[in-house]
Computed example of a mutant assay.
Amino acid sequence: MAATTRNPSRDSLAEAQPQLGLRERKKLKTRIAIRRATYRLISEQGYEATTIEQIAEAAEVSPSTVFRYFPTKEDIVLTDEYDPIMEAELRARPADEEPLEAIRQVMTDGLRTFIEDERDEVIQRTKLMVEVPAIRARMTETMATTSELLVHALADRTGRDHDDLDVRVFTAAVLGALREVMLYWAARDHQDDLIELVDRALTTIQGGLRL
């Protein structure tokens, strides 16, 4: 049976990772609390007006704790805990499945569940990507972490080295497509079907741009 992505809700995310020790689960819960407080404050008063001090107070932690988990305010908006899950699901796909098809299934299944569980957060995040230049700029940097995870998983699946140029170009193309889809979706007021947009973007990568 083909593997499917299991994106747990935020409430159960820590418990859904039994490989984590008690200390790691506490850290995960703190990260989630900080992010939730941030989104709540931003929705109430806007991104620029929301300070790290306010976030810390709302999350019941110190400002230094916020910075320990998230180097910048942009990171709070952009970072989530799903990259390791996505990597694991990619590695669990059938061994004979083409890389692009494996990526397609992992991304679309994961996004579908994520939207069902956290639609408001997804909408708020992508809206901020469009509206706040600092977030959009930081997004390129944070995607490097996701890229490394996927590069290693795809290299292992295809029997290539982790520094293989073709793997890195392929991964960059996929993540670049995902970035553009998110911005396009938000710019059109989230009216389109996000899953269909992702599927369309990956099909474009597969077939190229034709006349």
Rank of each mutant, 00 (worst) to 15 (best):
T108Y: 09
L128G: 04
V106W: 02
E141A: 14
M107R: 12
D96I: 07
A56L: 04
I115Q: 07
D109M: 08
E121W: 07
E44L: 15
Q54P: 01
R68E: 12
F67K: 09
I123Y: 10
E44M: 15
E118C: 06
P63L: 05
D75Y: 03
I103N: 12
D75C: 01
Y82N: 07
T142P: 05
A58C: 00
T126Q: 10
P84Q: 10
E101F: 00
P84E: 08
S64G: 08
T72D: 08
M107G: 04
R112K: 13
T65I: 10
A95D: 15
I123E: 15
R91L: 15
P133H: 08
V106F: 05
R112E: 13
T108N: 14
L90N: 14
T79P: 00
P94Y: 11
T140G: 10
R68Y: 15
T65A: 13
M139S: 13
S62A: 13
A58H: 05
R93L: 13
T50I: 12
D96L: 07
P71W: 01
L128C: 12
E141H: 14
M107T: 14
M86P: 00
E60R: 09
D75I: 03
A59H: 01
T51N: 07
D83P: 00
D117N: 11
T50L: 06
M129S: 03
T113W: 07
V66Y: 02
P71T: 08
V66G: 02
Q54F: 05
M86V: 10
L111A: 10
T142D: 14
A95K: 15
E57M: 01
A102F: 02
Q105K: 14
P71S: 05
E87G: 13
R68P: 04
I103K: 08
I135S: 03
I103G: 01
L128D: 03
D83R: 05
V61F: 08
T72Y: 05
L111V: 08
P133S: 11
L111M: 12
Y69V: 03
I115R: 11
A56R: 03
S64D: 14
P133Y: 07
A59Q: 03
F70S: 02
T108W: 09
A56P: 04
A137R: 15
M107P: 00
T126F: 06
D80S: 00
S43M: 14
Q45E: 15
V122M: 13
E98A: 14
R93Y: 04
I42R: 05
P94V: 09
P63W: 04
E60T: 00
D117C: 11
L111S: 06
V130G: 04
D120I: 08
E118M: 09
E141M: 11
I52Y: 01
S64P: 00
P133A: 10
A56Y: 02
T79Y: 06
E89M: 14
V130R: 11
E98Y: 01
G46H: 13
F67R: 13
P99H: 10
E87Y: 08
I52Q: 05
V61C: 06
F114M: 08
L100D: 06
P84T: 08
Q54D: 10
V66E: 01
E57P: 00
G46T: 14
D109Q: 11
Q124Y: 02
E60F: 06
V106Q: 04
R138P: 03
G46W: 13
I123P: 01
L90K: 12
G110K: 04
I55S: 02
